[in-house]
Nucleic acid binder design. Sequence first.
RNA 1: UCAGUGGGCCGGGUGGCCGCGGGCCCGCGAAAGGCCCGAGGAAAGUCCGAGCUCCACCAGGCGGGAUGCUGGGUAACCCCCAGGAGGGGCGACCCUACGGAAAGUGCCACAGAAACAUACCGCCAGCGUUGGCUUGGCCAGCUAAGAUUUAGUUGGGUCUAGCCUGCCGGUAAGGGUGAAAUGGUGAGGCAAGAGCUCACCAGCGGUGGGGUGACCCACCGGCUGGGCAAACCCCAUCCGGAGCAAGACCAAAUAGAAGGGCUAUAGGUGCCUGGCCUACCCUUGGGUUGGUCGCUGGAGGUGGCGGGCAACCGCCAUCCUAGAUAGAUGGUCACCGCUUUGGGCUGGGUAACUGGCCUAGGGUACAGAACUCGGCUUAUAGGUCCACUGGGGUC
RNA 2: GGACCCGUGGUGUAGCGGCCUAACAUGCGGCCCUGUCAAGGCCGAGAUCGCCGGUUCGAAUCCGGUCGGGUCCG
Length: 118
Amino acid sequence: MVRMGRLTKRADFTTVYGKGRSWANYWVVLRAFPNAMGTPRYGIVVSKRLGKAVMRNRIKRRMREGIRQLTPKGGWDMVFIARGPAAGANYHRLKGAMCELVTRARLFRLSAPGEGEP
RNA sequence: UCAGUGGGCCGGGUGGCCGCGGGCCCGCGAAAGGCCCGAGGAAAGUCCGAGCUCCACCAGGCGGGAUGCUGGGUAACCCCCAGGAGGGGCGACCCUACGGAAAGUGCCACAGAAACAUACCGCCAGCGUUGGCUUGGCCAGCUAAGAUUUAGUUGGGUCUAGCCUGCCGGUAAGGGUGAAAUGGUGAGGCAAGAGCUCACCAGCGGUGGGGUGACCCACCGGCUGGGCAAACCCCAUCCGGAGCAAGACCAAAUAGAAGGGCUAUAGGUGCCUGGCCUACCCUUGGGUUGGUCGCUGGAGGUGGCGGGCAACCGCCAUCCUAGAUAGAUGGUCACCGCUUUGGGCUGGGUAACUGGCCUAGGGUACAGAACUCGGCUUAUAGGUCCACUGGGGUC
RNA sequence: GGACCCGUGGUGUAGCGGCCUAACAUGCGGCCCUGUCAAGGCCGAGAUCGCCGGUUCGAAUCCGGUCGGGUCCG
């Protein structure tokens, strides 16, 4: 994931948290809010409650890989928050959970249909 | 072969597809392309010690902290090595906050005579003494037989012996306790006892010898009075404080905001003093909360030679080996290792036992650099190597 | 990343090395009071003092280690 496509500042996270809508399932919470730059940006939150540093880094790497496989439409800031059961989920289950949330939020690009199924 | 002790090392591999960070080259370019590099033994806990940066600087004191057998190593250390002492183990070997209780203060609950000052109970009876009782002798009086005398009885004013009580004295052996009781055991000795004497052991002091030293060995001497300093403390040695969110620079931004103190006044990183420095300082409120540097080549790794018992040190050669910043070093699939459980086939051996192949299933740890090193501590599936100890068997 | 603080009944706090078999408040259970509830009164239960070692005759307390919570920084 290129630097431009990431949420890096505390303020960006606060904005998405405060003003954005949210969707959730058993593993992941998605919060999203439109931005002004026309390209999507992503953020990942893994709480310290999910494990030690090795476990948290593994979850973040799997979620980054999941985001890389998605092609949503631009102009939105999205924050994926891992919930407790995500610590025990493998990559495919996490990707499926993230795809489901993006589909429900109708953030997939219209020109690339059929990306919904994991 | 079984059980164990000490030390070292490894801690998955190969391939496909899709990706990430950094450096260099080529580009106008953070684009595309090419080449190279990219987690650990603990990266962890942040428990010690340093480098580095800032606090303007210097000196002294107070306060505080740390260490604590000896000698070395090191930049330094609560680290490491070697040795001593004490303790544990049959042994290889292991463990130890291991200075001082004759500098002072404090504490030692309950129990106990008593917890550190010597009293109490008890034991002894040589000498003196108060009172009482008993036995025997002596003396005096009375009564009976009556010649001195004998017997009985009364009285102690006298002596002796014993007992009780009190004072004085000799003792520290004994005193159900307690975690701990004034050296221990045995023998002699004594009025009773006691290192009072003797033998052995433990402790103390002295002399001589060995060792750099902790300490050890030998001889001699007199005779010995508790524990706790991870209680305050004393002694010796060491330590200024904070920490890379240290700190420096660039850009942007609010506002020239309010209050207070101003020539010995304010400030100067725990406090005080002195020198000295700054001229403005302090408090409140507000703004920025972006980028670059610090940032990775270092008490560095590997090999050889030399010194040293060792830790380690010196010289030479050679190598460059992570630098992220919502935080890279991966995701996924397949196969193979390793290990373990069950089943089947099979080899060696009389047997106990031991090996090979196939198949089904399980497991494959602890854990992620964040300024950098040296240590310590803690976590860790499994595997492997070396040296050694004890028991059993065979030759 | 760094610097610190705290662990004692369900909860919030006390607690001189021996009087600790651990105190107080609140909460909990039962009884009394009341027509009923609250308040009040009486009684009771509830703690391996986070865990593991060490010092001491003796540890909640002193000293190490470890685990779990929490706070602060520019």
